[in-house]
Design a protein around this nucleic acid. Sequence first.
RNA 1: CGGGGAGUAGCUCAGCCUGGCAGAGCACCACGUUUGGGACGUGGGGGCCGGAGGUUCAAAUCCUCUCUCCCCGACCA
Length: 490
Amino acid sequence: MATPQIELSGQLPPKDPTDAEAFSRWYTTAIRRSELADYFEAVGGTMVIRPYGFSLWENMQAELDKRFKATGHKNAYFPLFVPESFLKREAKHVEGFAPEVAWVTHAGGEELAERLAIRPTSETIFGHFYAKWIQSWRDLPVLINQWANIVRWEKRTVFFLRTTEFLWQEGHTAHRTREEAHEETMRMLGVYADFAETELALPVIRGEKTTAERFAGAESTFSIEALMPDGKALQSGTSHFLGQNFARAFDINFLDQDGERKFVWTTSWGMSTRILGGMLMAHGDDGGLVLPPRVAPIQAIVVPIPTRSDDEASQVSEAVAAVVRALNATGVRAEADWSDKRPGWKYAEWELKGVPVRVEIGPRDLAKNLVTLVRRDTRAKEQVSVEGATARISELLIDVQAGLFERAVAFRAANTHIVEDYDTFKRIMQEQRGFIRAFWCGSSECEGRIKEETKATIRVIPEDAEADGSGRCVYCGQPATKRALFAQSY
RNA sequence: CGGGGAGUAGCUCAGCCUGGCAGAGCACCACGUUUGGGACGUGGGGGCCGGAGGUUCAAAUCCUCUCUCCCCGACCA
């Protein structure tokens, strides 16, 4: 995992997205210091998600899961092991995943007759069972999601963004018609986009992947792409239209209403712990994490200010407990920090952990029947009456959520370039990166050359690409009908 | 997998060149004074110096081998 030399005390290194090493240092240190996660040195590239980080994941999971249920999906759990023969059934699929699969070759003290892959994704296992379970058009659609862990043996790993083992959800659906499956693919892409923007305050661009970037075994792949502070793109969720590729490979067929035996049309879609990394990068600052209120494990932290007077101290304690109780009663995730650290230490600590709103309650406030509120994103301080605190904090949480999203949208706007010529393209990619929208003729050759020369890939052909009209390919000058979204990526 | 760097206290590191009691800061524990933006004092606990072999009266330090981790590249949710 990147950057081992981390001071686990004192000042956090500043967040400087223009310096790759400094930025990576900030990111890794902020995550370890805030106790979101720790790396597991004994197995390279793996990490522990600590309680604070897992709570973040659970909040995200709950929101996503709600959206899956609302669109008709049910959860299930499929096995971790995939027999090698399964992976091989779909030629492109195995070709795409083979290099990063971890294999189990021995078990029970013996060498296995057939080695088992630890799932890098589960299309093949779902395919196997769907073939058994689907007989008639009446059995369709099948809409199943699973929350699971996945192993992909990557060469370079980064907390959350790319770890050897990661958590995700994978939806696998089977449909009667091409149109229905395609609709499902787009529906789930929409769910992801809405989730990222509403819950994580992370603006995304949705669109279709090119052939080169397509999921191994898919007919078409769609993704949502977020822009990170260092100008690189993060693929944050994918939805695949698998056509009948897996249906044929696993013989998933049904007898249709017209009496004909047909293959089903399948989709798969996934979002992982990776997007948490994107969210942390996007919103954090020199002081540490800045968590969007909607998924923050603690939305408001109440800090009692110590005093030497016993009378005042008990007043403070009572007020603190009352405020926490009132907040909890209205559904705000609030806690008091009763530890015996000094107030300044607590401020720094909870800012590092990204808690959206801090409440300070001390004798000076209480003498005027006030409490002090500080929002994490702007660090703006204000005082409100004790009675008005709950309502005001709820407002602040909404404001912080909106503020983070607006800031991220503004950043993206400032770092999205409409480019017509290749010299400008190269200069921008070298100097400042960011998103580039440029016409592309559709040839893999131009795409490949651009990647070689600038490290930029086509992230997606944006959904709204038609609106740009037509022009000439930024690389070869041939006629082009759409602008592609280019960026260097994580 | 190729190129570079590093392994010494929980963390960050000094010590190594020139062999001679294993250290500092932070963290941790106790007590006291403190407490509205990362307090201070006193005392304390904590180490197979990554591992193996060698040279030597003596090795964290010199030599050989080995393992691991990190950074930079190619592959990726």
